[in-house]
């Protein structure tokens, strides 16, 4: 068995012919490590997670998960692989018709035959670990955005998956919960021998807890390395991102547009 839980080799992806989303991406996620994926908004980070969890299929290239090539896997194999991974969605994706308790117990109900007492204990433990004990009876509509994400985190952890993928777990959290969640991610990774893929914009936290960082821009990996290597990189785009500078090689626009350019005085109509 290889030392990588996930491997992407020259993966390309597009939703339609008009716009290539990912071009020739290669990544390695070693067992037991925390790997961070960083990059500007819309550069394709969520898309990478969707490819790994098999929600979308790569157009070319190869993705290996737990030693299986998932670009060619059938639905049964995909389902088996998915039971080993947990994913925290960018916007939580809690089931709005279920209470907090039922949301967290959902994977337990579907994949285990635990009795009620055990489920109660697991749900209480998971809630405690995200700092929201006693919220079992609430409904998603009664939660704040940050609370909802922490509940979603508890749900993703319910089955203690081998691989956890977090899509921007820190946005909208106050500094205390942010650090709590970051420490929790680190603790889960170390104590439960989990592997972690962390998509985030938070530079200080990433530098602190990640073992390896991939930088993406425009659907390509533009830099990679350990936090130490990244912090001394010569790459202008990465420097710009780390320092949060407005001007630089990162251009924050989707597509140039004639009337907008005209408005900026760059072009005459």
């Amino acid at each position: 068995m290889s030392e990588n839980i996930i491997e992407l080799k020259n993966v390309s992806f597009a939703y339609n012919e008009n716009k290539q989303i990912l071009t020739d991406i290669s990544m390695k996620i070693p067992y037991g490590k925390i790997v961070a994926i960083m990059g500007g908004s819309g550069c394709g980070k969520t898309t990478v997670l969707k490819l790994i969890s098999g929600q979308i299929k790569a157009n070319s290239g190869k993705i290996t998960a737990f030693g299986t090539d998932i670009t060619r896997a059938n639905n049964k194999t995909l389902e088996q692989i998915r039971t080993k991974l947990g994913m925290l969605f960018q916007f939580g994706a809690l089931f709005t018709d279920l209470s907090v308790y039922d949301n967290i117990a959902f994977p337990l109900n579907e994949h285990t035959k635990l009795n009620k007492t055990l489920k109660d204990i697991i749900v209480a433990m998971k809630l405690e670990s995200v700092g929201l004990s006693g919220t079992q009876e609430l409904f998603p509509s009664e939660l704040s955005g940050g609370m909802a994400r922490r509940i979603a985190l508890a749900r993703a952890m319910a089955l203690d998956p081998e691989l956890m993928m977090y899509d921007e777990p820190f946005t909208g959290l106050d500094p205390i919960s942010l650090n709590t969640i970051a420490m929790l991610i680190k603790k889960l990774n170390d104590n439960l021998k989990q592997t972690t893929i962390l998509v985030t914009h938070d530079i200080p936290i990433t530098m602190k807890i990640a073992d390896y960082i991939y930088f993406m821009s425009n659907g390509k990996v533009i830099a990679e390395g350990t936090p130490k290597e990244i912090s001394v990189t010569e790459n202008k785009s990465v420097q710009q991102f780390i320092n949060g500078e407005v001007n630089g090689p990162f251009a924050y626009k989707y597509n140039s547009n004639k009337s907008y350019d005209y408005y900026l005085g760059r072009e005459s109509i």
Binding site: Q55, R82, M87, P107, H111, A152
Partner: peptide, 17 residues
């Protein structure tokens, strides 16, 4: 439709349900 828009269906899929 709302479950789809808020990624609840995707989340269920990822939980292999």
């Amino acid at each position: 439709g709302l479950m789809k828009a808020t990624e609840q269906l995707d989340a269920m899929n990822v939980m292999s349900v």
